[in-house]
């Protein structure tokens, strides 16, 4: 048991959803669902986040942004694709500007079904993600990540 599962901080991004899942993610924070009971906090900042909640099938303009946000999250981290669009593109998969599920861009650990996904399933998805987060942490302890330097640094 690590502290990771007791304090998952989330980052939420809409990679072109219809808003339905987004407001359900927010609803999960509010009194009726109150995910802060589990220590879940919506940080709004990738550098503080452990869990990346992402909604919507990915739109071409969002590809770089999602990658950037994912890159800025410190390890260990998990990605939860929320709603059917994030899983496969959903009703929009045939749209010219939607490339499909989130997994076409970054690795996804948990898929939450629903259109729109209900807050209960979102919470369930995050809790499932916590298990994966722990595994990743253990894997990290086995192979500690090697520091990589960016070109600008000396």
């Amino acid at each position: 048991m690590t502290y990771l599962s007791k304090s998952p901080w989330i980052l939420h991004y809409d990679a072109s959803s219809c808003n339905g899942c987004d407001i359900e993610v927010l609803a999960a924070l509010t009194p009726v669902y109150d995910v802060e009971r589990f220590g879940i906090v919506n940080t709004g900042n990738p550098k503080h986040a452990d869990v990346f909640l992402i909604t919507g099938g990915i739109n071409s303009q969002n590809v770089e942004i999602v990658k950037n946000l994912y890159e800025q999250m410190p390890n260990p981290k998990v990605v939860v694709a929320i709603g059917i669009c994030a899983a496969s593109g959903g009703v929009f998969r045939e749209c010219y500007n939607v490339s499909g599920g989130i997994d076409t861009v970054i690795p996804v650990d948990v898929y939450v079904p629903g259109c729109a996904a209900r807050p209960e399933s979102i919470i369930d998805g995050v809790v499932t993600a916590l298990g994966i987060l722990e595994q990743k942490k253990l894997a990290m302890n086995v192979n500690p990540g090697t520091g990589k330097k960016s070109p600008g640094e000396t």
Binding site: E94, C95, Y96, N97
Partner: peptide, 17 residues
């Protein structure tokens, strides 16, 4: 609006598939 295909509603724009 930046789109994957240019002028998606214009003449000659091709949808996915």
């Amino acid at each position: 609006i930046k789109t994957t295909i240019k002028y998606p509603f214009g003449a000659g724009a091709v949808l996915k598939g």
